[in-house]
Design a protein around this nucleic acid. Structure first.
Lengths: 252, 252
DNA sequence: CATAAAATCAACAAAAAGCAACACTAAGTG
DNA sequence: CACTTAGTGTTGCTTTTTGTTGATTTTATG
């Protein structure tokens, strides 16, 4: 038992996976020391070790949502990390139920004293257990597609609050039509969250920027201030028109 | 018992970890004296000693949720699997926010067409993304201790429903006092969930059955029907009295 | 499959913490 | 006053912990 054991156990349980160097930064010790400390914990079966990182011991069941969640992982993680930089400790944030928002929630686990309102059970679960956070879950009946609520009480809860930032996702970004989503209720929720926020931040990976086949998708209305759009890589030509939609921030 | 004992105990309880030199500065004595004073406290199990510092003895009851969740993993998984057997496809279930309930939720991911009501964001997140489930989240403001809600709207949502089963946890099971929890709101929620359920199921691992130091814990009232109690291993003598509390089901 | 990059491991040296022994003080006791 | 006893500081030595270095293994990439 070293003085770091408890902290490592907590951090790993919280984050799921932590690289050796993240851990060494966090505790202010060398990588080698982390390996020495972790060894007994691995032997005792309290954590799992893989090349380069420590994991909380694997729970066999946690797949269904993971599938969509894993898609484009690297890009989403990069975007989330950039959004993390934009949101300071103590901020208030509305977060929607997109899969990119799940990554943002995970990144924000390192922030403190956040006030969060979300209609996503995953985001709520991710951020509510951080000591010092204040998390409001908006809604009652959850739909299976994204584990989120779009019922009357969800809108009631959101509309009662004011926040500094609002993190939104979109199914597609179209140069003319703007930010698009698949269903009316999602558009309404995006609009509701955008309205209570001082600054809207869209998390958009490059797969949302390509083609122009946007049939069936609905446009989210405009916001009072120009939103920010955090993207994982430069996108092609339409840049001019997109720049009218939002201030583009690169995650690289 | 020296004149410094109480002060050291208080300081350690407050700060969690204190180095030997911090302590010696604080009390104006040498490091060696601190070691001499602390030795009996360590032997008595009142504090933990690590190289260079004193720590408050780790308490699973106050640890962060993710840590409690990992504690006694095997037992909780076994219990959850047994409860899975008791709850059929298509059933309606109320689930509380205990760490054992988290395992039950994971096990129930293999069930279909469940109707679930819970005040735990983790449980809601776990079960809401299963296609065919109908999940109600009860509450709005979440507390960090367990990522669960105990506000007015939580009770409103629960009390509006009727369910077949109700899965509850307890901090301790006492032969005379029954099922005990740490806070009034938890007792109230357990009572509310138990009241709307046809059958109450307690998930109890053996660590909840031991000693009788139950100071500060509150009793959950009785239920109209005798609850079931799923345990991971046989427990000692008091069996007679416990059998009055609940029908005992072994997970082995 | 070859190469480069990243992570691991073993070994050593330096720093930090622990420990045993001894000396000193202060209070109580005959 | 001599003696005991409990509590404390000091000293020197031992043990534990940690960072560094360089060789080795694993993983990623063309």
């Amino acid at each position: 038992m070293t003085k770091y054991d408890q902290e490592i156990l907590n951090a790993v349980a919280l984050r799921g996976t932590l690289s050796v160097s993240e851990l060494s930064d966090m505790l202010g010790v060398s990588d080698q020391t982390i390996r020495r400390i972790v060894k007994p914990l691995v032997d005792a079966g309290k954590v799992d070790k893989i090349h380069g990182a420590i994991q909380s011991v694997s729970n066999p069941m946690t797949a269904p949502f993971q599938v969509r969640f894993q898609h484009n992982r690297a890009a989403k993680a990069k975007i989330a990390s950039r959004i993390f930089d934009l949101i300071p400790d103590g901020a208030s944030v509305a977060i929607d139920a997109g899969s990119s928002s799940g990554y943002v929630a995970q990144a924000l686990q390192m922030r403190r004293q956040l006030t969060v309102v979300t209609n996503s059970a995953f985001v709520a679960s991710t951020l509510s257990m951080i000591e010092g956070n204040r998390v409001y879950f908006a809604g009652t009946l959850l739909r299976a597609y994204d584990g989120a609520s779009y019922d009357r009480s969800a809108f009631d809860t959101v509309e009662r609050l004011q926040v500094d930032f609002c993190v939104l996702t979109a199914a597609h970004v179209h140069p003319d039509r703007g930010f698009l989503v698949a269903e009316q209720c999602e558009a309404d929720m995006a609009q509701a969250m955008g309205t209570i926020a001082h600054q809207v931040i869209f998390a958009v990976d490059h797969s949302k920027l390509g083609g122009t086949e946007t049939t069936g998708l609905l446009s989210i209305g405009r916001f009072k201030r120009q939103p920010w759009m955090v993207v994982d890589q430069a996108f092609p030509e339409d840049s001019g028109q997109i720049r009218d939609l939002a201030k583009v921030i690169h995650a690289d």
